[in-house]
Amino acid sequence: MLKPAELSTMPTHDRNSYTLEFQKVVRRYHVDRGLGPVTFTIRPGMVCSVIGPNGSGKTTLIRTAALFELPESGDVYLCGETRPTADAEVDRIRGRLIGTVFQHAELWPHLSLRDNIMLPLREALCHSKSSAREVADQELQSFGLLDRALAMPNQLSGGLKQRAVLARCLALRPKLLLLDEITSALDPDWTEVVKQRLLSFARDGGSVVSVSHRLNWVRRMSDWIIYLENGLIVEQGPPAEVIDSPTQPGLQRFIENA
């Protein structure tokens, strides 16, 4: 919902053209932990990477965008609409609009790889069994996992599980992907495949917000970078600005040590 007061102060700001928007969002745990106030916007087709030292608020940013944290102040907008508060509406948005892969996300251990992907399709998006299976197999194929469709999670390596978790998320066809350290267990070949997959997702109009410590990956993939320090955005811009010519001393140090 557009607020008249905000319209008058931001005449050129068209909220509906953004997939995700944070307006002065604050979510603090202690005085020195958490996030905010932060303001940024993510357009359709944009790949944004969030970087920063440990405890800088990256995960809180992802969790707040994924509607797992309620901001103390400020506004979160998803596709121009204010953040819903009713549980049913949050579930609907999470299933259809936002796809989130948390840090250390795991497959559900009691289900095979294929069932892990089919379950949310059946339960959250009400797919028929055959259509869920078709989508699941398509995703398994694209992540090189189809021959292990019947494997149980404890039979898979960390890298395979990480690919499968991403496949589970992409199978829901979200418009916004929120990814927290999803390449930590991937080898270079699969990191590249995932990168290509995310870029093609963005070319089709999807938006990606990804937390990563791999600066090389971040530079090659992103068209926008947010650098966080102590919960605040210290610098944001295209990779050429943020990574190649950083102005803030903290960011300079961060890049040198990376």
Binding site: D91, G95, F102, H104, E106, P120, E123, C169, L172
Partner: peptide, 26 residues
Amino acid sequence: PVGHVESARACGLSAHQTLRRIVLPI
């Protein structure tokens, strides 16, 4: 593990679906 519950909620499963399909079987 809370991660299994959050993954389910992140995939759009309701609290009840998460309990029935994820939490209770595990």
